[in-house]
Design a protein around this nucleic acid. Structure first.
Length: 638
DNA sequence: GTTTAGGGTTCG
């Protein structure tokens, strides 16, 4: 229509309230009206449509431009029916305390189905059935005792009982049911009506329910309190997960407490594990392996390491346990506690993600933070990570998809905190060598993976090179083994006490064998036979293996030869001692990053590089999980 | 203005 006016039809209490409040010239905002044909269009030639008041949704706000008075809200009062007064008939609105619930699950039809039972002061217990395609439209219930407000539910009679079924105009708000907690509605609705009366209803239901005794004394059980054969709800953080077979997925979780029973170990391939494939022995001892079956596999697939979860109706199974997907060669562990989430939805069985800001997650975070030794990675642990072959780091960092870099301040030794920030355009015009502060936005950064930032640096010739990947190193090893002929190693090289080791005299060892040896011997120097003499490998490969760490030498600056290290009187034979003995110029691990910064005036490329061991001071880097916040590992380097 | 499910432990 070209017409710029339209009729709005109000009825009932809203019409009365509106007529008392409105004045000519007021601005009116009408929301939630339905559009219908105007029956008078032929007579009045006005707009062919009218806006009609709809009982469940209409809201009118009046604003007076001349006096700038605040808007007057003429929303109709929603009316709520006591559960004891429900009769089969048109849609109603209700409040109730949740006494039973099933997480939304995929129905055989087109929607997800939520089942809940609610009660109120009338003590009538009513079953509610909610069918919605979108998960977020379902009531967001975490535990028994939560309070729901349901709009647009239709009372039906089924087997002589009144049930409520979601109908058109359905919406749900959920509240924590604990007396004293903030009254904050959980909902995906962008707008909803909630006022002091609603608050009062929630608080009344809370205090009524607290005296009724149907709320569980402890809402969930921790790993430390779980008993064999028990069914329980577990609030926990997901650390890693791995598929077992088509009907089973493994979740590795912890809740910050130690289970008094031995926990089932499940061995899976590291390359199918999402999240770290292993943890320190200390951490492993508090990690529970949970086998998730059948219909729950689908929801488990959506979870990410770092997520906080509640698993409902988990079963603790003592004794031997057959794990699907494992071959007969893997020993079945007897007397270890296994946790199963069986198929089906009986007893509310299911998994749900808990939001970061929920009191349960806040509490869980406190408990986890208090576990000794689980602070952020120490420098040595970080170094451990950095000097590990990049491939094995990938699972650890694959989830770090967003990298935020805060330029905090330059260290006190080089400038003071009173330096005023300058714009980038100004900075680019200034003379070199001066110290500046900038306040900028990070536009992009490279590399995207932390391990890719790791380089090898020679402090003598100041060149930098990439850390070779295993394929390259493998090549050097097999090349060396082809060359190997007989040679007589010096006697000192055969002793397990010395830092020199190699399968000299026969053939060179493979990279894999060397890594294996490195777990037994403190220092492994791979060697090859060259003209009957023992020689070092090409310096493209590490010249030294110490545990999981590998050390490299500079090809340009080393004058390498196999010599006995003069380790007499030296207590610790470390990489420096070995490098010196072999005439190898040791390469340092450094971190190199490129940042693209911008402000309103210009952009600037910044290269950061630093000794990996003392990477701190100038930059504070927060690595965070992009998805849903919580972190398996939160790294703050400062 | 349809259907789905309509609570009540797997069977690994």
């Amino acid at each position: 229509s070209q017409l710029s006016s339209i009729n709005v039809v109000l009825m009932g209490a809203l019409a009365k309230e509106f007529s008392q409040a409105v004045n000519q010239g007021d601005v009116v905002v009408a929301s939630g009206f339905t559009v219908g044909k105007s029956p008078t269009v032929n007579k009045d030639k006005l707009h062919p449509c009218n806006l009609y008041y709809s009982t469940l949704l209409a809201l009118v706000v009046i604003y007076c431009p001349s006096c700038s008075s605040s808007g007057i809200c003429c929303a109709p009062k929603y009316t709520y029916v006591r559960l004891g007064d429900l009769k089969a008939g048109p849609a109603v609105n209700v409040y109730g305390v949740v006494t039973f619930f099933k997480q939304p699950y995929k129905s055989r039809g087109t929607d997800f189905c939520s089942i809940l039972k609610i009660t109120d002061q009338s003590k009538k217990e009513i079953l509610c059935k909610v069918f919605c395609k979108k998960l977020e439209d379902h009531p967001n219930i975490f535990q028994i005792g939560d309070i729901v407000r349901l709009h647009g539910v239709k009372p039906h009679s089924y087997r002589n009982c009144i049930e409520l079924v979601k109908t058109f105009g359905f919406s749900a708000l959920t509240f924590d049911g604990v007396v004293g907690r903030p009254v904050e509605p959980r909902t995906s609705s962008r707008s909803f009506h909630f006022d002091q009366d609603d608050r009062r209803v929630v608080e009344e239901l809370r205090s009524w329910a607290s005296g009724q005794g149907f709320l569980p004394a402890v809402s969930t059980i921790t790993l430390s309190a779980v008993e064999p054969k028990q069914y329980f709800d577990l609030t926990c953080q997901l650390l890693a997960k791995a598929p077992i077979d088509t009907t089973c997925i493994l979740l590795r979780v912890w809740d910050g407490t130690r289970c008094p029973y031995k926990l089932l170990k499940v061995i899976v391939e590291p390359d199918v594990t999402e999240g770290p494939s292993s943890f320190s022995a200390e951490k492993e001892s508090v990690i529970a392996n949970i086998l998730i079956y059948d219909n729950h596999v689908e929801s488990a697939k959506q979870l990410k390491p770092g997520d906080f979860l509640r698993i409902y109706n988990l079963r603790a199974i003592p004794g031997s346990s057959k794990v699907p997907g494992l071959t007969s060669t893997q020993a079945v562990e007897v007397d270890h506690m296994a946790f199963h989430l069986h198929g089906g939805t009986a007893f509310g069985r299911g998994i749900r993600l808990l939001p970061e800001d929920s009191p349960e997650v806040q509490e869980l975070k406190r408990v986890i933070a208090a576990i000794p030794g689980d602070e952020e990675l120490s420098d040595s642990e970080m170094m451990e990570v950095w000097s590990t072959p990049p491939e094995s780091l990938v699972p650890l960092f694959v989830s770090f998809v967003s990298l935020t870099v805060f330029i905090m301040c330059v260290t006190e030794r080089t400038c003071g905190h009173d330096v005023q920030p300058v714009m980038l355009s100004q900075l680019k015009r200034s003379e070199p060598g001066r110290v500046h502060h900038v306040r900028v936005q990070l536009r992009s950064y490279e590399p995207l993976r932390l391990h890719q930032a790791l380089k090898l640096y020679c402090s003598k010739c100041t060149t930098m090179r990439e850390v070779p990947d295993d394929e390259v190193v493998d090549g050097v090893f097999s090349e060396a083994s082809r060359d190997s002929g007989p040679c007589s190693p010096p006697t000192w090289a055969l002793s397990g006490q010395t830092p020199i080791n190699g399968r000299s005299g026969i053939a060179g060892s493979t990279l894999e064998e060397t890594c294996h040896l490195a777990s037994t011997y403190q220092n492994i120097v791979p060697v090859r036979s060259s003209g009957g003499q023992m020689d070092l490998l090409d310096l493209s490969a590490p010249f030294l293996f110490r545990g999981r760490k590998r050390y490299y030498g500079c090809k340009r600056c080393s004058e390498a030869a196999v010599r006995e290290p003069c380790a007499v009187g030296v207590e610790l034979i470390d990489e420096k001692v070995v490098a010196e003995a072999l005439g190898v110029q040791l390469l340092q691990f450094v971190l190199l990053m490129k940042l693209e910064l911008q402000d309103s005036t210009d952009t600037l490329d910044v290269f950061l590089w630093r000794d990996a061991v003392s990477f701190h001071m100038t930059i504070k880097v927060q690595l965070s999980l992009h998805q849903r916040g919580p972190l398996g590992i939160q790294c703050w380097r400062s």
